[in-house]
């Protein structure tokens, strides 16, 4: 047994972190929110070049996957940098398409996903009802018993300005008998959303610790005060005990325990990242409550993702049903 990332996996995560830190993702998030997807698309291509999207695509379709542990590493880093766009949906769609067998839909889109040429949005009603960024995606799918492509209409703003949630009008079935593939896509999407939340929570903790080290009140850095320290320590406890659940679930991929373990990880990651966001806001004070301060983008995303890919109540129910 060796339940820690190996050197190659750590290097992969570090490479993505460097790539995204150098790119300065906050600017891309704000552009995405204002309808300019160009910087976000550029990030997407860079991530594809680093191999991120190929991780979910089977080798037969030009990918390198599925590699669930590496996918969790990647989603964590994308969450850490609040990367905009439907990357969880695209990766989950790759899982869906990869399970459909020899169908034209898979043969057409999987290589494009692997190459980073396709932004795919996906709805899995009822738990995933809206097509994230469906208005800018290259493909919008709706999956349950069958897989259909879908038109989007209208659209409602999210608390996270970089998330546009669009209702879908499903077309005719392209593939039928897709229940198991849809369930697998849901599980992988929920796991990657959890990893994204974990990364988001970790970033919020880091930026808040840095702020508490420098912000002075009463003649001292506020991080000296136990009331502040204890908030931040609690966030680290929550995050540190959510992470093993993420990787434990990744290792349960394609075993009977996968759904249960994904739900455990999602429940813990939702709680940990939301707590991280609340503490980040509280410790920053009023500056954290402003639109212009970049960490507020992370704070808003943490709440938006809390019930994305299944609410904590739904995931807890899945855990209990599996016991």
């Amino acid at each position: 047994m060796k339940f820690v990332l190996d050197a190659e996996q750590r290097l992969f995560a570090a490479t993505l972190h460097t790539l995204l830190a150098d790119a300065g993702t906050a600017r891309a998030v704000r552009a995405w929110a204002s309808g300019d997807t160009k910087p976000g698309r550029a990030l997407w291509s860079a991530l594809a070049d680093a191999g991120v999207f190929a991780l979910a695509v089977p080798e037969a379709h030009g990918g390198a996957g599925p590699l669930p542990v590496e996918l969790v590493c990647a989603a964590e880093q994308l969450g850490r940098h609040a990367v905009p766009g439907p990357f969880v949906e695209t990766l989950a769609a790759a899982e869906l398409l990869g399970r459909l067998g020899d169908v034209p839909l898979a043969a057409t889109w999987l290589p494009r996903i692997a190459e980073g040429e396709a932004l795919v949005s996906l709805t899995l009603p009822p738990a995933v009802p809206y097509a994230l960024d469906g208005d800018v995606a290259d493909l919008v799918l709706t999956a349950d018993d069958s897989v259909r492509d879908a038109a989007v209409r209208g659209g409602t703003a999210s608390l996270d300005p970089a998330r546009r949630m669009l209702p879908v009008v499903p077309g005719e079935p392209l593939v039928t008998g897709a229940r198991e593939a849809s369930a697998a896509a849901y599980d992988l999407g929920a796991l990657l959303c959890a990893a994204q939340q974990f990364g988001l929570g970790r970033a919020l903790l880091d930026v808040t610790v840095a702020y508490a080290q420098t912000r002075q009140q009463f003649g001292h850095p506020i991080g000296e005060f136990q009331a502040v320290k204890h908030h931040l320590a609690g966030v680290l406890v929550d995050l540190e005990f959510a992470r093993p659940l993420l990787f434990g679930a990744a290792l349960a991929y394609r075993t009977p325990d996968f759904s249960r373990d994904v739900s455990a990880a999602k429940t813990a990651a939702s709680a940990a990242s939301y707590t991280a966001a609340r503490v980040a806001l509280q410790v920053h004070g009023a500056i954290g409550y402003t639109d212009e301060y970049d960490p507020s983008l992370w704070i808003r995303k943490a709440r938006a993702l809390y019930a994305a890919w299944g609410s904590p109540a739904e995931h807890r129910a899945r855990v209990v049903d599996a016991l």
Partner: peptide, 13 residues
């Protein structure tokens, strides 16, 4: 313990 976590793991003063 939370003091230890904050000071030794998070690096707070």
């Amino acid at each position: 313990q939370r003091n230890v976590i904050a000071e030794r793991l998070l690096g707070l003063p």
